[in-house]
Design a protein around this nucleic acid. Structure first.
Lengths: 263, 263
DNA sequence: CGTCGTTTTGATCAAATTCAAAAAGTGTGG
DNA sequence: CCACACTTTTTGAATTTGATCAAAACGACG
């Protein structure tokens, strides 16, 4: 692993509030429970600014209004007015663009603790939908902007969030531009596992986790077709790299092989 | 054109200093001449903050130290320390990632007036090289950070720059994930033309412009091979969409067709 | 148990890659 | 100015990867 690695940024890293890995989040997807501290340590390479994170988390907890989006429901539309910033409490959100002939490209999947809807322009550049029923908290953008004006260097935190999104996008570009179907699926599974199961799990025993999204969603994220994704799962299973307990339940049996795919 | 359009953001828009189209830049690539005002109007959809732009341009003009990078020379390496922010005065810079087996993905091309090297983390996530001899001005990141601390809401400008990069990346993801070779090349040419010749030219007569980069660079940007890029140029020429005065000189003969490719 | 949506598998097809070589450009030195 | 070496671009033929079309298997749910 020398170049082009850092799988973790392909999907959301454990937290997206700033470049520091934020220690406040719900324990697992779907519980919507109380935030738990200290699950990840900020890497030395990242700017740690806990007070800002705490402030953002606090902002949503205090003045955020609850929003519930049903499975496949739309949080906001492409070209829609940017008026809220959301923090996910449970469930999974996908952001995507759709070409006028129906081709769809999923930009990213967002999970509990992640912030979605952050954009600088006035209109959303992509739409956001729920992969599965999601609960969120919304804060008006004008409130956020007011906070910025009020001097607290919240803008710095927003910048870092945007920068993190940019890193993720750049990894995605490399994946889509230069990786084979097998590598794409491998990278995706490894990144998703570290997001769902926690980074620490990657060093321990075989990880077992559920895929919250359909094969179609995975295909549209990886720039493949649903059939190719399905076949690739089968191939990886035949190679002994993964084991499919069910279509939506994956065990990573050979993480070394997966990490190798990262090139 | 309803969704997934805005070709212009695939490559650099005329200016990347903020979301506003900045009116200060050199007249054309390679001259390194004096900046000219008022070439583009900021679109209504973008946040115009001229004073910030002006401040950034001024910063580079006043305290920036000149840097010259020869053709194919490296401005900075992937994983290299982030210590400077650069503004291009002439020439073209590419940013790219390289997989350990040599596969390369170009993230973007940057031209006169663009800012390169902006990253939030401590280490560069990609390398930057000169497509052709480039002259730049460098400002130390610590100076930039000092400016931020000093209260001027420069961080807001940096945020907007990062956000603009993010938009570009998202367009690139759609291109790599869901577009055919022909569409990729078409989108690329249209975007490059509007970047080089100016947005206004897109509404007027047939645009004629030079490609500063090789077929290999284009291939690595579009996630294709050099042969496919070459064949696609030939196809587009046969279709009457473009005309190749020489390998590096392109005329867009049918911009409607190109714009249609944008879906 | 039957229906509906999702996933898998099979057969065929097409787009893009690979390997190979020719053609066109560029620059250098005689 | 031409000859030569070298790089870039184009073209051709064969191959491969992933897409498409079609249908079967599977799972959830009323």
């Amino acid at each position: 692993m020398t170049k082009g690695d850092d799988m973790s940024s392909i999907l959301q890293t454990p937290q997206t509030v700033t470049t520091a890995n934020v220690p406040v989040r719900t324990p697992s997807v779907g519980t919507g429970g109380v935030a738990v501290r200290g699950q990840w340590l900020p890497s030395a390479d990242q700017i740690a600014d806990w007070s800002l994170d705490a402030r953002i988390v606090h902002l949503f907890a205090e003045i955020g209004t609850p929003v519930v989006v049903p499975r496949n429901g739309e949080l906001y539309a492409e070209d829609g007015q940017v008026d809220n910033l959301y923090r996910i409490e449970s469930g999974v959100i996908r952001t995507c663009k759709i070409l006028n002939d129906g081709r769809r490209q999923i930009d990213g999947f967002y999970m509990a603790g992640d912030i979605v809807g952050l954009e600088v322009g006035r209109r959303h550049q992509y739409c956001a939908e729920a992969v599965c029923r999601a609960t969120l908290r919304a804060v008006r953008m004008r409130t956020v902007h007011a906070q910025i004006e009020a001097g607290g260097d919240l803008s710095c935190a927003l910048w870092e969030m945007t920068a993190r999104e940019l890193l993720r996008s750049q990894q995605h570009i490399l994946l889509l531009g230069r990786r084979s179907a097998q590598e794409r699926v491998g990278c995706f599974l490894l990144a998703l596992a570290s997001r769902i199961a926690g980074r620490n799990v990657l060093e321990t025993a075989n990880v077992l986790f559920d895929l919250p999204m359909s094969r179609q969603d995975i295909a549209d994220y990886l720039g493949l077709t649903i059939e190719t994704v399905s076949r690739t799962f089968t191939q990886l299973e035949a190679m002994g790299v993964i084991a499919l307990e069910s279509a939506r339940t994956v065990r990573l049996s050979n993480r070394a092989a997966l990490r190798e795919m990262n090139g």
